[in-house]
Each structure stands twice: as structure tokens, then as C-alpha cells.
């Protein structure tokens, strides 16, 4: 946002004040997340920077909390559980969500707005209500405390994100490409796999990543549904935070932040790719 050359003194002052304010807001957004990373290397079990840490004395830092995390069977098995649940839920949610988005974007779809609103609703219904209802439901059909019930619940919570991102990708989609493909003799299936899918892939992957992170991060439903064999890492973190917050949690949190950065990069690359697609061929 460049300042015009004729800007008055007052405008200049305001302009720089504005930039400082924005800088502070960005700091507010990011600093809390970044600050836990150095703290997770704290040699002492406290949540503040020790004098040694501030003077960059190596003695102030240690890997002990990462050690504690990665040698603990409970943490490792709960991390495994979390990933197993998240990956399974993502595959199902992405499939169902993509199909639904394809249907919703057809002009012939009746009651489109109402049905979209319905499919998105798990995102906005308070989680405590969803969790209690799902628990009652799966308990009644003898499936509570199983991976199946947790995965299915996470499909419910993750699918709306897929519907949203794929619908958004489809809205930028040029339907003439379908006609072009079909006029050249491709049938519907070939058209879908050769033309539609490659163009939608960034949207689908983005939706899938959302579903994945939603499941991985979900606490309330698993608090109700998970038995000791399914305990995911979020449940452990939650009770840890409630009862005795130990730097081991910060070690796991730092790993999760690193993972978020990785996912974010993937998303950014996908976005660029899809933008290139659109501007190149649209």
C-alpha cells in the first residue's frame, strides 16, 4: 500500500501509525504460537524463560521433554490413534464431501441453498451438543468406545469443510471444458477422471487437509466416545492442561505447530497451482 507522493504530513503520520498497529496485530496473532517452541526446550519444568535461556546458554536448553514424549508408550500410542482416526475420517469425508459438492454445483439441483446449509450445519452446531448426541447414538447401537464410532463422528465434522472448498473450486470451473471433452467423444467417466478431477484436485486436497486437521484437533467428541484403547492425543492433552500442565505438552504442541506450518505451505502451493490453472486456461 504505497503512500501517494502528495500525501500530507498528517496522512504520513497516520499511515505509519496504521502500519505499526497492523504489525502489533500480526504479532498478537503469531507470537503466542511461536513462543511455545523455545519454551519446549526448557531444561527446567517451568513455563518461562530462565536466565540461562535468555543468555543463550546451552545449559538452559534440553531435549528432555521431547525425550519424555517420544519414549512414553501412552503418548506414542495416543498419537498413533489420532493419526489413524484422522486419516480414516479424512478419506471418507473427502469422498462423501466431494460427491456432494459435485451434486450441489449442478444447476438442476433442487433446494440447493437449504441442502448446503444442512450439510454445513455440523460446523456451527455447538460441539457439546453434537458430542452428547453422537455418544447417545453410538451407545444405543453398541458401538461407543470403538474406532468406528469415532471415525464416523469425525466424518460428520470434517465433511462440511470438504463441501465448502470443493464447491468453491467448482465455482471457478469452466463448464465448457466438459462439453469440449464430451464433444471429442469422451464419456462421462473419462471426462470426470481426465478433465474434472485434475482441475478440482487442489480444492479436494485443501478440503481433505481441513477434514484431517479437524479430526486431529478434535477434543469434545472423543472425550465422550473414546475408550482407553482409542484415547487420542487431544484427550491426553486436555486432561494434562486441566490437571498438571507439563512441558511434555509443549513439546507435542511444538511438533504440531511445525506440522501446521507444513500443511500451510502445502495449501499455499496448491493455491498457486490452482490460480495458475485458472488464469492459464480459464
Amino acid at each position: 500500500m504505497a503512500l501517494p507522493s502528495h500525501a500530507s504530513r498528517l496522512e504520513r503520520i497516520w499511515h505509519y501509525t496504521y502500519l505499526v498497529i497492523c504489525g502489533l496485530i500480526f504479532f498478537f496473532l503469531v507470537a503466542p504460537i511461536i513462543v511455545i517452541i523455545p519454551l519446549s526446550f526448557n531444561a527446567t519444568p517451568y513455563f518461562t524463560f530462565t536466565r540461562e535461556m535468555l543468555t543463550l546458554d546451552p545449559a538452559g536448553y534440553s531435549m528432555r521433554w521431547y525425550d519424555a514424549l517420544l519414549t512414553s508408550d501412552e503418548w506414542l500410542s495416543s498419537i498413533r490413534n489420532s493419526f489413524f482416526i484422522a486419516i480414516s475420517a479424512t478419506i471418507i469425508a473427502t469422498t462423501l464431501g466431494t460427491l456432494a459438492a459435485l451434486g450441489l454445483s449442478r444447476r438442476e439441483m433442487p433446494a440447493r441453498a437449504a441442502i448446503t446449509a444442512f450439510l454445513i450445519s455440523p460446523m456451527i452446531v455447538p460441539l457439546i451438543i453434537t458430542a452428547a448426541a453422537l455418544f447417545a447414538f453410538y451407545a444405543r447401537v453398541n458401538l461407543s468406545q470403538t474406532f468406528f464410532s469415532i471415525i464416523m463422528s469425525h466424518v460428520v465434522l470434517g465433511a462440511p469443510f470438504v463441501v465448502i472448498t470443493v464447491t468453491a473450486a467448482l465455482s471457478g470451473f469452466d463448464n465448457q471444458l466438459i462439453r469440449a471433452s464430451q464433444s471429442m467423444g469422451a464419456n462421462q467417466v473419462t471426462t470426470f477422471f481426465k478433465v474434472i478431477l485434475p482441475l478440482l484436485l487442489p480444492g479436494i486436497i485443501a478440503g481433505g487437509l481441513f477434514a484431517f486437521i479437524t479430526s486431529l484437533d478434535e477434543v469434545v467428541v472423543v472425550l465422550f466416545l473414546a475408550g482407553p484403547e482409542q484415547t487420542p492425543m487431544t484427550v491426553r492433552m486436555f486432561s494434562g492442561l486441566r490437571e498438571e500442565i507439563s512441558p511434555t505438552i509443549l513439546a507435542l504442541a511444538s511438533i504440531l505447530v511445525a506440522m501446521s506450518i507444513g500443511l500451510l505451505t502445502t495449501m499455499e502451493l496448491l493455491r498457486r497451482r490452482s490460480e495458475a490453472h485458472r488464469t492459464g486456461r480459464g
Binding site: P45, D73, E74, S77, P228, E229, T231, R236, E243, E244, I245, S246
Partner: peptide, 26 residues
């Protein structure tokens, strides 16, 4: 921090297949 308590969670025993249910008590 409270090592003692952290140890308590050790007790939540890990995965046992449902087939063995008759040999377990929850």
C-alpha cells in the same frame, strides 16, 4: 511435573483385542 501422577496414566493399558474380552476386566 508430578511424576507420581504422570505414572498413573501408565496404567491405562494399551490396546487389547476385543477377541480377548473374556480374559479382561475393565
Amino acid at each position: 511435573m508430578l511424576k507420581q501422577i504422570a505414572l498413573g496414566t501408565t496404567i491405562s493399558v494399551v490396546a487389547l483385542s476385543a477377541a480377548m474380552a473374556q480374559d479382561t476386566l475393565t
